[in-house]
């Protein structure tokens, strides 16, 4: 546990050379440090997402969370997120743009003098799907963590939502270890969809580990909402740091 950390907003070069705002935190006085890119959930770069960034710093990672709605600003993050959500996921966070921002965040972290050269990504909710995609499309990363990313597998049209192809079709290009955490009471991804993702990754011979929690639904790490599940979240965070320690810090 690192007690002294520095948290601040930084700018880095993202997709197509755009300068992107990111929330950054890192422990003070230690090096070399692995890097982590945190992909916020759909409500935006909110206080809980910033808590996650600071948590990674206390665990010995230099961390940055790209503000994925940044281009809809300037303004307060909540207003920017509201505009982005109203415009829709495909317009406000298109896959190629997010992947460009992730690659830029990884390059930013690796360029810091204290970097050990390793960078991982973790994402929550929509960010979980983006972390899965980054494991396939951003080969400069070293490890990826998908926390309950929805719409990874193809989705049938239901309740007015159009059908979706998902991103599982990119899985043949997955080039790094993947950790997945899922709640068995989640509706997107539901257990059958997680089964399907497991099946595809197994067939492809990919290096992945999934943990699936009874008594948990979507977003069970989120401490400021009723969906938070203490036991499952504590175990899940242990799994995250075991996985990242192994792949980014060389801990056996």
């Amino acid at each position: 546990m690192k007690e002294a950390i520095l948290a601040e907003f930084v700018g880095f070069t993202g997709h197509r050379g755009d300068v992107i705002e990111g929330y950054s935190a890192r422990p003070l006085g230690d090096s070399p440090l692995p890097g982590m890119v945190v992909l916020h959930h759909a409500p935006g770069l909110d206080p809980w997402s910033k808590e996650v960034v600071r948590r990674f710093a206390t665990e010995g990672y230099a961390c940055v969370a790209p503000h994925l709605y940044h281009r809809r600003g300037p303004g307060h993050w909540a207003d920017i997120a509201a505009a982005g959500r109203a415009a829709g996921l495909h317009e406000s966070m298109p896959n190629d743009q997010v992947m460009g921002d992730v690659a830029g965040a990884a390059a930013y972290l690796r360029a810091q003098p204290e970097s050990n050269g390793k960078v991982g990504v973790i994402g929550f909710c929509s960010g979980g799907r983006q972390a899965f995609l980054a494991a396939c499309d951003v080969p400069t990363l070293d490890a990826a963590v998908d926390c309950w990313g929805g719409s990874v597998t193809p989705q049938a049209a239901v309740d007015g939502k159009p059908a979706s192809n998902g991103v599982i079709g990119r899985a043949p290009d997955m080039s790094m270890p993947l950790l997945g955490l899922f709640g068995n009471d989640d509706a997107n991804p539901d257990p059958a969809q997680v089964d399907e993702t497991e099946r595809v990754l197994t067939e492809l011979g990919k290096d992945f580990t999934f943990f699936r929690y009874d008594g948990a639904a979507h977003a069970f790490f989120v401490t400021d909402k009723p969906v938070y599940r203490l036991e499952q979240a504590l175990d899940g965070w242990d799994r995250v740091f075991e996985f990242l320690g192994r792949h980014l810090k060389g801990v056996q």
Binding site: H41, A82, C125, K225, V227
Partner: peptide, 19 residues
Amino acid sequence: NVMYDHPVRAPYDHALLLD
């Protein structure tokens, strides 16, 4: 804009969002 989705501040997993 009217949505029923994850709120930012209100202490619910989903809420009626009016902008």
